[in-house]
Computed example of a mutant assay.
Amino acid sequence: MPHHTPSTAALLRPAEAELTARLRAAGCVFAEDEARLLAGTGATAEALAAMVDRRVAGFPLEHVLGWVDFCGLRLAVGPGVFVPRQRSAFLVGCAAGLTPAGATVLDLCCGCGALGAALAHEVGHVELHASDVSGAAVELARRNLAALDAELYVGDLFEPLPAALRGRVTTLLCNTPYVPSSRLGTLPPEAREHEPLASLDGGEDGLELQRRVAGQAHGWLAPGGHLLFEVGEDQAEDSVRLLAGAGFRAWSASRTDIGATVVIGQA
Rank of each mutant, 00 (worst) to 15 (best):
Q266G: 10
A17M: 09
S181D: 05
T44Q: 00
V64C: 04
T256W: 06
R192W: 12
L207K: 02
Q210R: 04
A114N: 04
V123P: 02
G116D: 04
L23D: 05
P100Q: 06
A95S: 08
R211H: 08
F158E: 04
P188Y: 07
A9H: 08
R249P: 09
N144Q: 02
S182W: 15
G167D: 12
V263N: 04
V64P: 02
R55E: 10
C112K: 01
V29G: 01
A17K: 09
A267D: 15
A136N: 10
D33K: 06
L161V: 05
T176N: 15
A260T: 15
P6L: 05
G215I: 08
E195V: 12
D149K: 12
V83D: 02
V179I: 15
M1N: 13
C110W: 07
A120H: 07
A57G: 04
A25E: 13
V105S: 07
L91R: 00
G259K: 07
P84A: 04
T171M: 08
F70E: 03
L119A: 13
A191N: 04
L12I: 13
T5M: 00
A164H: 08
G93F: 13
G116Q: 08
E233L: 13
L38N: 06
A150F: 06
D205H: 10
V154D: 06
C28S: 00
T176W: 13
G225I: 06
M51L: 12
L172S: 08
A57H: 14
L75N: 07
A117I: 10
D132L: 15
A89G: 15
V240K: 01
G102T: 11
Q235G: 08
T104D: 03
D33N: 00
P189D: 02
D205A: 02
W220E: 04
G206P: 07
A164Q: 09
L38P: 04
L221K: 07
L48G: 14
R87A: 11
Q86K: 07
Q266L: 14
A95D: 05
L11M: 12
E62G: 05
E151Y: 13
L209D: 01
A45N: 06
C28V: 14
L106P: 07
H63Y: 10
H226V: 11
G185H: 07
G78I: 14
A164G: 00
T44R: 03
L172M: 11
E62Q: 15
D257I: 15
A198Q: 14
R168H: 12
R85L: 01
P188A: 13
F30C: 01
L227S: 11
V105F: 15
G155Q: 06
D107L: 03
L73A: 10
N144G: 13
H218K: 04
L173W: 09
C28G: 00
V262M: 05
V154G: 06
L23V: 09
L19C: 15
N175I: 05
R22D: 05
A101N: 03
A217I: 01
A236H: 13
A96Q: 06
S131P: 08
W67H: 09
V56S: 04
V81W: 11
I258H: 03
A35T: 13
A214K: 01
A217W: 03
C174R: 08
H194W: 14
C28F: 10
G225V: 15
L173R: 09
H63D: 07
D257T: 10
A39Y: 08
T261E: 12
E34P: 00
G245E: 03
V240E: 01
V154I: 15
A260D: 05
A253Y: 12
V138N: 02
A163D: 10
D205N: 08
